[in-house]
Amino acid sequence: MDRFLEWLKRVDIPTLIIFLFLIALFVLAAFTKVSIPSLLSDSIRRIGMNGVLVLAMVPTIRVGTGPNFGLPVGIIGGLLGALISMQLGLAGFTGFWVAILFAILICLGIGLGYGWLLERVRGQEMMVGTYMGYSVVAFMSIMWLMLPFKNPDMIWAIGGKGLRYTLALDKYFAHILNNFLKFKIGGFEFPTGLLLFFAGACFLVHLFFRTRTGLAIDLVGQNERYAISSGVNPNKARLIAVVLSNVLAGVGIIVYAQSYGFLQLYQAPLFMTFPAVASILIGGASIKRANIRNVIVGTAIFQTLLTIALPVLSQVTRGDITEVMRLIVSNGMILYALTRTPKEAR
C-alpha cells in the first residue's frame, strides 16, 4: 500500500486524471454497442502511427530547449522524401525505404540550418520554433504549387499545376508497415510491422542517449556549465539534438502517412505538433526532462483516449466532440507543463 502511495506521488496529476478518464471511457464503452476489440486494434494502430513523431520531442527536451514546437520543419523534410520516392515511381518496401532515406538526407540539411537558427535565439526556442513551423508551412505551400513534380497521381487532375492537397498512397507504400506480419485474433488486428518499427526507433534513440554524444546532450540539458566543465561543446550538442529531432520528425511523418494511406500537404503539417507535444507531456515528461517511457506511455494514453472517445462519446452526446476534446486536452496539458514550478525535491 505504501509503495502504491509512493508511486502515486511520482505520477503527474494530469496524467492520472487522463488515465482515470480513459478507464471511465472503457467502462462506458462496455455499456454501449461499440466493439472493444476493434477499438483496441484501432488504438494500437494509432500508437504506432504517431509514436515516432512523439519520439522527435525527446532530443530537444533533453538538451534543454523544450519540446520541438518546430516539428513541421522536420515534417516538411519527410514529405519531400516521400514525394521524391513517389515521383520516382517506387512502390512497396522499396518506395518506403527510399522515402525514408531521402527524408533523412533532407532533414539532416534542414536540421542543420534550423539548429543554427535556434542557436542564435537561445531561450526563445519554443516560440521561435512555433513560428518557424508556421512560416515554413506557408512557404512550402507556395512551393507545393511551384515545384516541378510531374507524376499525374500527385498533381491536380484538372489544370495540372501544383500538388494536390492529399495524395493517395495506394499505388506506392500505403500500409506497408501495417501489413507486415499482421495477424488477427477475432476482431482484434495487430499491425506487427508498424509496432516493430516504432519499437526499433525507440530502441535506437534509447541507445543513442547512452553514447558519448547522447550523454553530452543530456549533460547540456541538465546543467550547461557542468557540461562545459566536462569538456562538452554545448552548441554542438544542441545542434545534434535539433538535427536528430528533425530526422525523427521526417521519418515519423512517413510512418504516419503509410498507415493513414495518404500524404497530406499544405496546412496539414501544422496539426501534428501540438498532439505530439501533448502526448509526451501526458506520458509524464516535463519541458526539461523526458525519456522513452514518457513517449510510449504518453502516446498510448493520448491515442487510446482519442480512439475510444469518438465512438463512445458520440453515442452519449451529439456530433463530434473529440476534436474539441483533443484541443482542450492537448493544450491544457501543455499549459500545465509550462506553468508548473519545477519540482524542487528536498
Partner: peptide
C-alpha cells in the same frame, strides 16, 4: 577543476550519484 558553485556547476542535481561521478570521465 571543482567549482565554487557546487550546486550550479559542479553537480547534476537530478542525476544519480554514480552518473555524477562518471559522466565527465565518459565525455573527456
Amino acid at each position: 577543476y571543482l567549482s565554487e558553485d557546487r550546486r550550479g556547476v559542479g553537480l547534476l542535481l537530478d542525476e544519480s550519484v554514480e552518473m555524477n561521478i562518471a559522466a565527465t570521465a565518459i565525455e573527456a
